[in-house]
Measured scan of single mutants.
Amino acid sequence: HITLTNLITEETTHVVMKTDAEFVCERTLKYFLGIAGGKWVVSYFWVTQSIKERKMLNEHDFEVRGDVVNGRNHQGPKRARESQDRKIFRGLEICCYGPFTNMPTDQLEWMVQLCGASVVKELSSFTLGTGVHPIVVVQPDAWTEDNGFHAIGQMCEAPVVTREWVLDSVALYQCQELDTYLIPQIPHSHY
């Protein structure tokens, strides 16, 4: 019994991606959610070859190996599938703050939850000092008015990073160091 759908849910078992011959794909929301959820992320060749051979072929032979941004053979989907007991964002409290493009905020929040993070909706909701690490995620190029994202640091004691930190961490299924993704914050004294 196979159901085809464009939506990823808890029940989804396989995410089928358009890939090149070496099982490398573009980074899409579907790709990120498939990895975050520990699903099989496979090339569409799995479907076409299975139909051709009239049997369901082994997914291992068709698993996506990499993507056009993070590298052609990083094995993120395999790492995620085999590490669902070791979520990459466990112990983190993440607030997805401000506008985002090409990806609804609720989907970004679901993605970080699938990776083990707790989501907070407001900067004031962080449970500071409880052994949980707060992180604010923003997408600077989605902000149309002044660079308000440079002043988020005044509203909460949390590192502010770009959305790329989430996307790179999920694609590779390895929590990336914050340093290269940090957004400089204007210190309090400048006000």
Rank of each mutant, 00 (worst) to 15 (best):
C95Y: 12
E22K: 12
N70M: 13
I186E: 10
I2G: 12
V136P: 02
D179A: 06
T3V: 04
R72T: 03
E122W: 05
D20Y: 02
H1L: 12
L4C: 14
F23A: 13
V47N: 01
V136K: 03
E157D: 11
T9K: 04
C95G: 03
F45G: 06
I94M: 15
F62R: 01
F100S: 08
V68S: 11
Q154S: 12
T12P: 00
E26L: 15
W40I: 09
K87M: 08
I2L: 12
D179H: 03
E11A: 08
Y173K: 04
F62P: 00
V69N: 05
R65V: 08
Y97S: 08
I8F: 08
N6C: 05
V161T: 03
H1W: 14
Q84P: 13
S189K: 05
K78A: 14
F62V: 03
Q84A: 10
H1F: 08
E93R: 04
L167G: 03
V16T: 03
E157T: 15
A158P: 05
E59G: 07
Y191L: 08
G66V: 00
V68C: 00
K18F: 07
L182F: 10
M111N: 00
R72E: 11
M155R: 15
H1R: 09
Q75P: 02
T180M: 06
G34P: 00
G71A: 06
I51Y: 10
R54F: 05
L57Y: 06
I94T: 05
G131V: 05
T48R: 09
V137E: 03
I135T: 05
W110S: 10
D146A: 15
W143P: 09
D141K: 08
F62L: 02
S118T: 11
R86F: 11
L4Q: 00
E26Y: 07
F89T: 02
Q185G: 11
E82T: 14
K39W: 06
G116W: 06
F100L: 10
N70T: 07
E59R: 00
A117P: 03
E10L: 11
R81Y: 00
K55Y: 13
H150P: 11
L167V: 03
D168V: 06
V42R: 04
R90G: 10
Q154Y: 11
S118L: 11
V120L: 11
E82P: 01
N70L: 09
